[in-house]
């Protein structure tokens, strides 16, 4: 008689536990009251269970954000792990929402949970997508603007993973500048 042993399915653990946050703009409430923790996960399978269940970014209402951050880091400049950091920012035109927004955001998520930045993945705090009528934004946040080697490696790898052509330049901005300046006043600390 054949003897069958049933092996339990073991999910594939991620290096980090991640938290998904959702922001829905309600101007009658303070910013922080509009931010909700959706859930946490730490396996490949649980990531997909979540991703397959929630709305694609391109279907969100304008003013909404998704943020995916390492467990314990809140998706705001004020968090201790973010306050000395900055972001690699991808700005998209209105036309890119249908063509590239979901693809870029999924690629960003896969970079984060897959630890795509080699020895510098520890420098990564999370990623954010802002859905806005005037143009969507996607960013990867890192914790230290002064760690030039890490910031540049993350930026180059991220640009490659998004499949952006060499002639497209993406910029890294310090949160300290983003928090105090707006629009054209924000200087890129690095570009790749």
């Amino acid at each position: 008689k054949e003897h069958l042993t049933i092996q339990p399915y073991v999910k594939h653990p991620l290096q980090n536990r991640w938290t998904l946050w959702f922001f829905k703009n309600d101007k009658s409430k303070p910013w922080q009251a509009n931010l909700r923790l959706v859930t946490k996960f730490d396996t490949v399978e649980d990531f997909w269970a979540l991703y397959n269940h929630i709305q694609l970014a391109s279907r969100l209402m304008s003013g909404c954000d998704y943020s995916l951050f390492k467990d314990g880091i809140e998706p705001m400049w004020e968090d201790n792990r973010n306050k000395c950091g900055g972001r690699w920012l991808i700005t998209l035109s209105k036309q890119q929402r249908m063509l590239e927004l979901d693809q870029f955001w999924l690629e960003t998520l896969l970079c984060l949970i897959g630890e795509a930045f080699d020895d510098y993945s520890n420098e990564v705090c999370g990623g954010v997508i802002n859905v806005r009528a005037k143009g969507d934004k996607i960013a990867i946040w890192t914790r230290d603007t002064e760690n030039q080697e890490a910031v540049l490696h993350i930026g180059k790898t991220y640009k490659e993973r998004l499949g952006l052509p060499v002639k497209i330049v993406i910029g890294y901005q310090a949160h300290a500048d983003t928090a105090t300046k707006s629009g054209l006043g924000i200087k890129n600390k690095f570009v790749v």
Partner: peptide, 20 residues
């Protein structure tokens, strides 16, 4: 031992439960 996963590996799991 760092758990680094490339995109193809991760994408391979997107519908794993749908096919079981």
């Amino acid at each position: 031992d760092k758990k680094k996963y490339d995109r193809e590996f991760l994408l391979g799991f997107q519908f794993i439960f749908a096919s079981m």
